[in-house]
Design a protein around this nucleic acid. Structure first.
Lengths: 300, 300
DNA sequence: CGGGGGTCACAGGCTCTGACTGTAACCGCT
DNA sequence: AGCGGTTACAGTCAGAGCCTGTGACCCCCG
C-alpha cells in the first residue's frame, strides 16, 4: 500500500487528540476504521507511529518526527487545491487577448488597466492585430478573447460593449463639411476610398447592403488598408469615406467627421464558445462595467 | 470526493505524456480507469484539467496552473515519507541517553562524539545520573538507553561493551601497596569504605557474594556515595575499597590501585526491551565498534 | 474488591470505489 | 475505405474502507 492524503489526515487527527476514539469522532468514522487505517500507514512506513495501550495513546519517536512532515504535506495539498480553485474562478492563469487595430487605440489601455487591477494574478497578453488574424486566432485557440467590430462569423460568440455614431469622413473644406448630419444617400456622387475587399469579407458584405439600401453603388477611386491610410487619403482630397466616430482620434487635421443618421458602429468582445472559461467571463464583465461607466470611444 | 495523492500522480502522468493511453501504460492501469480517475479529480475541482478530443490531449488553462502545484505536493509527500523512513532507520529523531556518573567520565565523551559524527541528524541528549535514577528512567521511558554497570534488573536488557580489571584501592604507603596483584581475601582484615547499601541493592548483593566467596565480611568503617568520595576517604587513610581500574582517572594522588585476581568490572549498555528502537541499536553499534577499536576505560 | 467507564484491537459483514474488459465514436493518414 | 491512433461509455468484479458487535485490558471509585 502507498500512503494517501487520507492516511496523513487520520494520523494528524490522532496525533492531535492522542486518542483514536476522539479523533474518530472528529473524522466522523468509527474508531475501528481509524485504527485500521493507522495500522496500514504504520505498515507502509515500517514502524509504529503511536505507542498505544489500554490506557491511552502517545506519539512514538517516529511519529514525533513524522507529524510535522504530515502536516506540511496536508498544508501544501490544501494550497494546491486552493490555487486550482482560483484558476477555475479565473483569478489566476493566462489570458491572451486580441484587439482589432482600429479599436486598440481607445479600448486597449482602459480595458487592460482595469482588468490588471481587478485580477492582478492573471497574466494578460494583449495584442493589436488585424481582423483576419483576430478571427483565425480565436478559432485556432491562439487568443482567448478579442475586442473587435461586427459582423464576424457564426462560430464565435460576441457581446456588444459600446455603440457609437458612424460618420461620413470628408476632406476639410468639402461642401458638405459644415452640415450637422448627413444621410448616406447624400454621398452618392462622391469619390470613395475604402478598404480592400479581401481584408474581411463580412464587413464588406455589410457595406454592400448599406450602400444598396441608400440607393447607390459607391465609386471607389482608391483602396487602402487601415484607418490611418484612409484618413490620409481623405485629408489629401482623394475622396470620402465612412468610419466610426472614434476614428477621429487618429487624425484631427484635414478631415471632418459628420454623423450619418441611423447608423451605429458597435464594439464587441468575441470569443470561441468551446473555450468559454471563467477568466473570459471576467474580462467581459470588466469591459462591460467599464463601458457602462465611461465613454470608451473617447478614452485612450 | 476529496482528491488523494493518487489523483495527483495520475494527473501529473497524463500531463507529462499528454496522452491517457501512454500515461495509463506507465501507471500500469487501464486507460479507462485513468480517464475515470481524472474525471473524478476534475469534478472535485470543478473544471476540466485537459482539453481532450479524439486526436489527443492538451492541458487546459486550469491544468496548466495546477500542474506545478500537483508536482509540489507529490514532492513534499515523497520527502515526508523519506523523512519517516530515516526516522525508522534511526537516522533522525531524539535519543535520551543516561551515563552512570562513575562511567560518564571515560564513556560519555568518545561515545557521544562518535555517535554525533555518524548520526548528525539525531538529537542526542546525554546526562550523567546516579544508578537508581538511571534504572528508573529506563523503566519510565525517560531514557532510551544507558551506559552503566551490571548487575541491573531482569526487565532491562544489556549488552557488554568493555571489561576491565577490578582493583583494590589502598592509601599510598599501605603495606600491600607495592604488590603487583592481590586476592580479595588479602584484604580481610582491612577497614573498608563502601557506598551506602541503599544506593543500588543488586550491586550490594553482588558485593556480599564476592566477600562471602573470599571468606570474610568486610568491616565497614564508613559509607560514602560516589567514587570521588570513596577515593578521598581512602587517600585520607580511613580505609580501603574496591573499584574498577578506570576509577583511577578520577584521582591520581594518595591512592594506589592494585589489580584483584579473577575479577572483572563490565560496562554495559542497557535499554528497555519494549522500546527497542533502531536508534538504540545504532547507539549500541557505535559504542561496540568504539569499544573494539580503542580502550574506552583509558579514554575521556 | 467488584463494577463502571474508559482505552484500543479483533472479527465478520456490507457497500462502493477503483480497477478490469469489451466496445463505440471519432480523427487523420494512407 | 481501412488502419492506427485517440478518448469515452458500459458492464462487471474484487477488494478497500467502513460499519457493528465484541473482547481484553486498565484505572478509578464506591
Amino acid at each position: 500500500m502507498t500512503p494517501e492524503l487520507r492516511h496523513l489526515r487520520y494520523f494528524v487527527a490522532v496525533a492531535e487528540h492522542l486518542s483514536f476514539t476522539v479523533a474518530a469522532r472528529e473524522l466522523h468514522i468509527a474508531q475501528q476504521s481509524l485504527s485500521q487505517q493507522i495500522a496500514a500507514l504504520e505498515h507502509a512506513l515500517g514502524a509504529r507511529l503511536f505507542d498505544r495501550d489500554t490506557r491511552g495513546t502517545r506519539l512514538s519517536e517516529v511519529g514525533r518526527v513524522f507529524l510535522p512532515e504530515a502536516r506540511a504535506v496536508l498544508t501544501r495539498a490544501d494550497a494546491a487545491l486552493e490555487t486550482a480553485r482560483k484558476a477555475v474562478r479565473g483569478e489566476i492563469g493566462r489570458l491572451r487577448v486580441a484587439f482589432l487595430v482600429s479599436t486598440a487605440n481607445y479600448m486597449m489601455p482602459p480595458v487592460v488597466r482595469a482588468f490588471r487591477k481587478r485580477y492582478p494574478d492573471v497574466e494578460l497578453l494583449a495584442e493589436a492585430v488585424g481582423i483576419a488574424d483576430l478571427v483565425a486566432g480565436l478559432r485556432e485557440d491562439r487568443y482567448d478573447a478579442a475586442f473587435t467590430r461586427p459582423p464576424l462569423v457564426d462560430d464565435l460568440v460576441t457581446a456588444t460593449l459600446v455603440a457609437e455614431p458612424v460618420c461620413a469622413v470628408l476632406p476639410a473644406g468639402h461642401p458638405l463639411a459644415g452640415r450637422a448630419g448627413l444621410r448616406l444617400a447624400d454621398l452618392a456622387g462622391e469619390p470613395w476610398v475604402l478598404t480592400p475587399r479581401g481584408s474581411w469579407e463580412p464587413w464588406h458584405r455589410k457595406y454592400d447592403t448599406d450602400f444598396r439600401a441608400a440607393g447607390f453603388e459607391p465609386r471607389v477611386v482608391q483602396r487602402a488598408d487601415g484607418v490611418p491610410s484612409l484618413l490620409g487619403l481623405v485629408a489629401a482630397g482623394v475622396g470620402v469615406t465612412r468610419l466610426a466616430r472614434s476614428a477621429h482620434s487618429l487624425r484631427r487635421t484635414g478631415v471632418v467627421f459628420v454623423p450619418l443618421a441611423d447608423e451605429q458602429a458597435e464594439t464587441v468582445m468575441a470569443w470561441h464558445p468551446a473555450r468559454d472559461r471563467q477568466a473570459v467571463r471576467n474580462l467581459l464583465d470588466v469591459a462591460a462595467e467599464l463601458a457602462a461607466s465611461i465613454d470608451l470611444t473617447e478614452a485612450g
